[in-house]
Amino acid sequence: MAENIKNLCAPIPTELHAQLRQRQEESGQTLSQYMTWLITKFYESEGKSTMKENQRTIAFQVSTELFKQFKDYLQRKGIKQNAFFLACIQQALEEEQAENGAESE
């Protein structure tokens, strides 16, 4: 038995339409299939947290030149960006703990 189908029509901005059609064509799906997939994915992800419950994001901006130098450094050292920052944070916290321990003696 065929699934009940309803037509959905809504005007959207031209640039968004072009982007949507490009991605739909790249997917190899018909527009109907692509829109069904897209809307389904949206509703499936709605209300789901993108972060793990026990983790938080830290973000900040740097100059383009500093960013390039940093990325080059990471590549030379074979280090992942998150591993670098986690190590820096852990080191700073350990140093503070050592300083506080020395002060209480």
Rank of each mutant, 00 (worst) to 15 (best):
N100P: 07
E96K: 14
I79R: 11
R56H: 04
L31H: 05
S63N: 07
L74V: 01
E99A: 14
Q61P: 00
R21A: 06
N7K: 12
Q29C: 12
R23D: 14
R56S: 03
L20C: 05
T30F: 06
A18L: 08
S27R: 05
Q69Y: 12
E53F: 07
A83F: 01
I5A: 11
A98I: 05
E15V: 08
E44D: 09
G101S: 10
L38I: 08
Y43Q: 01
Q75E: 13
R56M: 03
Q81A: 08
Q33T: 02
G47I: 01
E99D: 11
L66C: 10
E46S: 13
L93N: 12
I58Y: 03
A18M: 06
A102W: 06
Q22A: 14
Q55G: 00
D72M: 14
L8C: 09
G78H: 03
F85S: 01
G101I: 05
E3Y: 09
E53H: 12
Q24I: 01
Q97G: 01
R21E: 09
N82F: 00
G28Q: 09
E46Y: 12
K48L: 15
A59C: 01
N100F: 11
C88T: 08
N54K: 02
K52F: 10
Q90N: 14
G28D: 11
W37G: 01
Q29W: 03
P11A: 07
E94N: 00
S32K: 06
Q81L: 04
Q90T: 13
E53T: 07
K68H: 09
M51L: 13
L20W: 01
E46P: 02
N7H: 09
A2V: 11
Q69F: 11
E103D: 10
M51H: 14
I5L: 11
E94L: 01
Q90W: 07
I12M: 03
N4Q: 12
I79F: 10
R56Y: 02
I89M: 08
A98V: 05
S63L: 04
A18V: 04
T50P: 02
C9E: 10
Q75V: 09
Q33P: 00
L31I: 13
R23W: 07
T36M: 13
K41W: 04
Q55S: 06
K80W: 06
S63V: 00
F42R: 04
L93P: 02
Q24Y: 04
K71Q: 14
L93M: 15
S49H: 06
Q97S: 09
K41C: 08
E25S: 15
C9N: 12
K41V: 04
A102V: 08
K77S: 00
R23C: 12
E94K: 00
P11G: 04
T36V: 14
